[in-house]
Amino acid sequence: MTKIIVNATHKGGEGKTTNSIMLAEYSALIKGLKTLIIDMDPQANFSGRYISMEYDPAYRGGKIPALHPDFEPETDSEWDGRSSIANIFYGEEVIPYPTAIPNLELLPAHSHKLQEAEAVTKNEVLEKVHLQLRRFLELPDVRGSYDVIIIDTPPSKGPLTIAAIKAASHIVIPAQMEQFSIEGIYGMLQLWKQESYYRAKENQIDLIGILPNQVRDIKLHKQFLEGLKLMKGVSDYVMPRVIKKRAIYTEILVEDANPKSIFELPKTNVARLEYEAACLYIMERAFTHG
């Protein structure tokens, strides 16, 4: 069964995209699993790490994926040469992009189209948006092509995040150990709860847990983490792995970074060990639960 792991929290800056990147690269580079990554965030940062994104001439500030490498203008008269995950909301075909990393393919974002789907309010259409990603990922062709699908979500609780959660087999909530972040966890748990009400018992959504992120050696972070671990029931969902605040995690995202991936650092590197442990925990959990 293909595992579909969603990184979600509606608060920004918690590490959804970074965590999606780490998981994707761990899955493809270290585990050698056939991995598909999906960028549901109109900001398109996740996509931009793996393919070149262009500014949308029709929509200021928005981004669109570059032309697909398989596109041949002479023969593909029906296709404009670009493909994004947003196509599923418009009944259009979706063609994954290859990346520089073997085993890793991408369905990139398309800012304007995703924002349009996010802005839907009419009930009938809304329901369609909510279920569309799940329907797409249930296609035998999609399932058959990948072992793991990793989805990055926008910082919102809107239709795109809900669609990702409805499609997910597993969720990870990255969170800083700070006031607003913990409030964000609460909001995310509501979505998880709601979804678990709707799922059949044999097909439940598995909350892998809250990943304490950007943790610093300060009292606030330590005490909030302890507080979460003491909460009844909640403690089971605080991952026993912690990601500390390190410059390397953002340095690695710079365009001409060298090496490009944390998993290309020496095996004894502290940062690599730290993220490897977290990814291993998530993957093992995904392949043993649900």
Partner: peptide, 30 residues
């Protein structure tokens, strides 16, 4: 000395949410 604590209301809310999700999963499946 500084002490940081997650507020009671937030703690309660988090705990209740997890319990409810455990107790009622699958309840609304149609």
């Amino acid at each position: 000395k500084k002490v940081f604590q997650i507020s009671n209301a937030l703690t309660e809310g988090l705990e209740e949410t997890v319990t409810a999700a455990h107790n009622y999963n699958g309840e609304l499946r149609v």
